[in-house]
Simulated scan of single mutants.
Amino acid sequence: MTLLELSGLVVGYGGTAVCPPLSLTVAPGDAVAVIGTNGTGKSTLLRTVLGLQDPLSGTVRAFGRAVDERERAFRTRVAGVLDDDAFFPGVTVREHLVLTARGHGVADAGAVTDRVLDHMGIAGQAGAMPHTLSSGQRRRFLLASALVRPRDLLVLDEPEQRLDTAMRGRLADTLRAEADAGTAVLFATHDDRLLAATGARALHLSDDGAVLLDPDEAPGVLAGFR
């Protein structure tokens, strides 16, 4: 069963491609990391998968349909965290997460939120306003916003950013558990240790093309970017 399918996909801005054409299929329970040096189109690819911008050519389909971020059926099954801060103004960390969970029909949203806050190590900041958090705490908070809601596809742009070593280890465990539970996980990363710990396949983007690497090949390629 294919959950996400990219076919001859070219992404970019203003008619200018930022990565070579690529094709990829992702099934439930798959974990795929997008790797490459800066400027090879990793973030742009993820934005296109999330329906936040149109492809220059080719297609991206999720759940058997063309991706359309405006469709409720798509939004209810896809959780994404990009490299930007987005939160409701005037509410605390916990209130934000409870609102997110309730908005997606989560039963007992408060209890789910409390478990996720504890898992992400920010239970002590539950009553804080998001803008008062440190950069690392804000990153945990944004990741928590994806974990309090239902999801069949989880899309994360460099989720390891601003996380300490211990939290990166917990993040790897979380992504692996998501895949084991049947969620399709697509994430961009520069961290070879995170990649190795998740056991993900890797889509390597470069000026020469896009190559899908097996889990045992990918961390060595990524480590070579340093």
Rank of each mutant, 00 (worst) to 15 (best):
Gly136Leu: 06
Ala109Phe: 02
Arg115Val: 05
Arg201Asp: 02
Ala111Arg: 14
Arg65Gly: 10
His204Ser: 09
Gly220Met: 04
Thr48Met: 07
Arg193Cys: 04
Val81Cys: 13
Ser57Leu: 09
Leu133Asp: 10
Leu194Tyr: 00
Met129His: 12
Ile35Trp: 03
Thr174Leu: 15
Gly80Arg: 04
Asp114Asn: 11
His131Ala: 15
Pro150Glu: 09
Leu22Ile: 07
Leu117Glu: 00
Gly36Glu: 05
Pro20Ala: 14
Ala166Cys: 00
Arg176Glu: 08
Cys19His: 11
Ala62His: 05
Asp207Thr: 14
Leu97Gln: 05
Pro21Ile: 08
Leu4Lys: 08
Met1Tyr: 11
His96Lys: 07
Val49His: 05
Arg151His: 04
Ala146Phe: 10
Val106His: 04
Arg75Cys: 08
Val185Cys: 07
Val49Asp: 04
Leu82Val: 12
Pro219Ile: 00
Ala177Met: 01
Phe88Cys: 12
Thr183Ser: 07
Asp108Phe: 04
Gly39Cys: 06
Gly36Leu: 03
Ala62Arg: 01
Leu213Thr: 04
Ala17Val: 07
Asp85Asn: 13
Gln125Met: 13
Gly199Asn: 04
Arg94Pro: 04
Val81Gly: 08
Pro150Ile: 09
Gly80His: 06
Leu46Ile: 06
Asp192Asn: 10
Arg140Asn: 04
Ala196Asp: 09
Thr198Pro: 03
Pro89Trp: 09
Leu194Val: 05
Ala188Arg: 02
Gly103Leu: 06
Leu186Cys: 08
Phe225Ser: 06
Asp173Gly: 13
Pro215Gln: 09
Glu71His: 13
Cys19Met: 11
Ala107His: 12
Gly64Met: 10
Leu154Asp: 02
Leu147His: 06
Val32Ile: 13
Leu6Ser: 06
Thr44Ala: 03
His131Phe: 14
Arg168Lys: 13
Thr2Ile: 14
Asp83Lys: 08
Ala177Asp: 14
Ala126Gln: 11
Gly209Cys: 06
Ala177Phe: 03
Phe63Gln: 07
Asp108Val: 03
Met167His: 09
Arg115Glu: 14
Thr44Ile: 08
Asp216Ser: 14
Glu5Lys: 13
Gln53Pro: 03
Gln53His: 11
Thr48Pro: 07
His119Trp: 14
Val93Asp: 08
Arg70Cys: 07
